[in-house]
């Protein structure tokens, strides 16, 4: 770990003021950032502790939700109104990490969680465009079982653009399917980003995970009126029953009108650099009967264009099977 300065702030304005310092980072739960600092992946010169600036309330009902950026994952997952009106979010949160980690991790921090790509997380690997821009990608010719199949940039191992990392969050997948909005405060005031525009695909700048600008602070995540409270499912496929990142995960929400799907939200985790929401699949579900055939068609559309690598070809089929299963579960109702 490099030496760094530490400053505790008591209000959002103070946080914004402090973050102006060179190479400073906000410290929330620290469950990801501090690990990466110990291993030399993150090397901030200053940590600004924002755990005492407020922003730790959940306001939720059927008409919407506002989740403060510093709400802990445990508190959010166990909030009675979230469980009632946005069970998909609660379900996804409880699928992630461990109780101890969820007790510390924050909503904003989870949005900023970095990839679990082995080659990003270990500085002994010389090539990682995300960690050292321009250094290439060791994952392309390495062990890429956990990597992306959709939306990645593959221009070869030596290209400065190549990145096949995935976003590891479970919460983000649910927020994507729920069509959330991220509220941001910056030096120039407040702005909002639709969830689909918050995280980025690697494109030609794989070092950037999100469209949050330097000096900005996430203050809240908001949710539109609840549509999927009765029919949603979060399915996480992983190598063990708990405490493992997703090979593939599916957040599925259905708004039902009898046996017909009135509207749908569908996003995948573990397959791309960002939560992979499929508007094509959602569109294909809308107005259709909730049948296996409908779900299979949605699944095909959701993974259309997938380009697997040497060790992760299984993800294409696994994602399709998982989508059909998650939609089936969702259609049967939350109690299924």
């Amino acid at each position: 770990m490099n030496p760094f300065a530490y400053q505790r702030v008591e209000a959002p304005d103070a946080a914004l003021h402090a973050i102006a310092a060179q190479n400073a980072k906000f410290l929330g739960g620290g469950t990801n950032l501090v690990d990466l600092m110990k291993d030399g992946v993150e090397t901030p010169s200053m940590l600004i502790d924002i755990n005492h600036i407020g922003l730790n309330k959940v306001l939720a009902n059927a008409n919407g939700a506002t989740i403060g950026a510093l709400v802990r994952n445990s508190d959010l997952a166990n909030d009675p109104n979230i469980i009632t009106h946005y069970p998909l979010l609660s379900h996804a949160l409880l699928s992630g990490a461990s109780p101890q980690l969820r007790n510390m991790a924050t909503t904003g921090g989870n949005l900023m969680q970095r990839t679990r790509c082995f080659y990003f997380m270990d500085t002994a690997f010389p090539a990682c465009n995300k960690r050292v821009p321009g250094s290439g990608c060791a994952a392309i010719n390495g062990f890429n079982r956990i990597h992306a199949i959709l939306g990645q940039t593959d221009e070869g191992a030596t290209s400065a653009h190549t990145c096949i990392a995935t976003n590891p969050s479970d919460m983000n997948v649910a927020l994507s399917a729920l069509d959330a909005t991220v509220e941001i405060q910056g030096p120039k005031g407040k702005r909002t980003l639709p969830f689909s525009e918050f995280h980025r695909l690697p494109g030609k700048t794989p070092e950037l995970d999100t469209n949050l600008h330097s000096g900005e602070l996430i203050v809240a995540v908001t949710l539109p009126p609840s549509k999927f409270a009765k029919n949603s499912w979060y399915l996480k496929v992983r190598d063990r029953q708990s405490y493992a990142f997703a090979l593939v995960s599916v957040a599925a929400g259905l708004e039902m009108d009898g046996d017909t799907i009135k509207s749908a939200g569908l996003a995948l985790g573990g397959v791309a650099h960002k939560p992979w929401r499929s508007l094509e699949a959602e569109h294909a579900l809308t107005g259709k009967p909730a049948t296996t055939e409908t779900f299979q068609r949605a699944a095909e559309l959701a993974v259309a264009g997938a380009k697997p690598h040497e060790h992760n070809a299984f993800k294409v089929e696994l994602a399709k099977q998982s989508i059909v299963r998650a939609l089936t579960q969702a259609s049967k109702g939350v109690e299924a």
């Binding site: 082995f118 080659y119 270990d122 002994a124 690997f125 060791a138 010719n141 390495g142 062990f143």
Partner: peptide, 11 residues
């Protein structure tokens, strides 16, 4: 798991 290029344990 050993990386096939660098010979380093990835996990």
């Amino acid at each position: 798991v050993i990386d096939p290029v660098y010979g380093r344990t990835v996990n």
